[in-house]
């Protein structure tokens, strides 16, 4: 799993421009699935038929593949790029960040106007410097509407911990790929690598409508509360996968959170409960599709969400893997 996650953190996947990460995912999953297609929003759907033909039921597993990004809204005469955020990013935390443009691979650094205090910094004070001399020089590699994401490597720290800029949510993508490769179910599995989650679960909304599954399960990251003066969360790195009970978009029906807890018990995996009133996920948008879709979720606890250095425990990934496989095998 570690290598799979590492591979998935390399491509840039700005919301609305997920082609690079999508291509990487597709290359890995294509041999393992019966069918795949894309849609207008940029979602990637992969289908793995049920192990028997008896059931017409489907489980839709959703992992968003996009990450927050900086969208270019203007290019000035000296070749500096003015930007606006796609997804939850904070202006003050971006100064000095290294970024890469998904489309051309062009790299740059985020700079800020000097006359503003750090705490008052807004996106209108920021720009990206790609080392261009003039507007026309810049426009060879970057157009208005292009998007850049963080450009930082993948590292292992301490025991079983990994750090990367897009673990939110490439870890979820890795878990979905793993399930498509190895899990067995009497339900047809529709894997959705969803687009545009960071701008409001737009991909998930249309995916829910298109697939209208019997049950949906969302794989995502949830911030842990185990660092000094962290925002409150009962989640701890290394204490197991988190079964979603509540997030900012969704309250999960007890029936389905209990199924996941049972699955954890079946495989003796450690687990925790996610109550995260300020964390968003695709779950809420899927739940609302058509006449309503029972939706549940598994979350991987992570530190430093929203920064270039997100930290996750591989032990939690393993626990998630086991719980997901068992959950899928028991659907009938």
């Amino acid at each position: 799993m570690k290598d799979l996650i590492r591979t998935l953190t390399v491509p840039s996947g700005p919301s609305g421009d997920e082609f690079a990460i999508k291509e990487s995912i597709l290359r890995i999953v294509e041999p393992h699935v019966d069918e795949w297609y894309e849609d207008v929003l940029g979602n990637l759907y992969v289908i793995k038929k049920a192990r028997s033909e008896i059931s017409e039921k489907t489980v839709m597993i959703v992992a968003h593949m996009d990450e927050p990004a900086l969208s270019v809204i203007d290019i000035d005469e000296d070749g500096f790029l003015r930007i606006a955020p796609l997804g939850p990013l904070h202006a003050a935390s971006l100064v000095g960040a290294r970024v890469v443009f998904a489309r051309t691979g062009r790299r740059g650094v985020v700079g800020a106007e000097h006359n503003v205090a750090l705490k008052d910094l807004e996106f209108s004070h920021l720009f990206i410097d790609i080392g261009a001399q003039t507007q026309s020089d810049a426009m060879r590699d970057v157009q208005i509407g292009d998007a850049a994401t963080f450009a930082y490597g993948f590292e292992e720290v301490g025991n079983q911990l990994i750090v990367g800029h897009a673990l939110d949510n490439r870890v979820g993508c890795a878990l979905l790929i793993d399930a498509l490769q190895h899990a067995q179910s009497d339900y047809t599995i529709v894997g959705v690598f969803s687009a545009q989650k960071e701008v409001g679960s737009r991909g998930a909304k249309v995916a829910g409508h298109r697939i209208h599954p019997t049950i949906a399960l969302v794989l995502d990251i949830s911030p842990s509360g185990d660092t000094p003066k962290a925002e409150r969360s009962s989640l701890t790195l290394g204490a197991g996968v988190a079964v979603k009970v509540l997030d900012a978009t969704m309250v999960v029906s007890k029936k389905w959170s209990n199924h996941l807890i049972e699955a954890a018990k079946n495989v003796s995996a450690s687990y925790q409960i996610e109550v995260a009133p300020r964390t968003t996920s695709d779950a809420g948008a899927i739940f609302l599709a058509q006449s309503g879709i029972p939706t549940c979720g598994l979350a991987i606890p992570a530190r430093y969400v929203g920064t270039p250095s997100q930290m996750v425990s591989l032990a939690d990934v393993t626990s998630a893997q086991q719980v997901l496989h068992n959950f899928l095998s028991l659907l009938s």
């Binding site: 309250v251 809420g284 739940f287 609302l288 058509q290 006449s291 309503g292």
Partner: peptide, 13 residues
């Protein structure tokens, strides 16, 4: 109370 969800899905149904 968390976003008028049931009414939307029931109206669709």
């Amino acid at each position: 109370e968390i976003g008028s969800k049931g009414a939307q899905t029931a109206a669709f149904r």
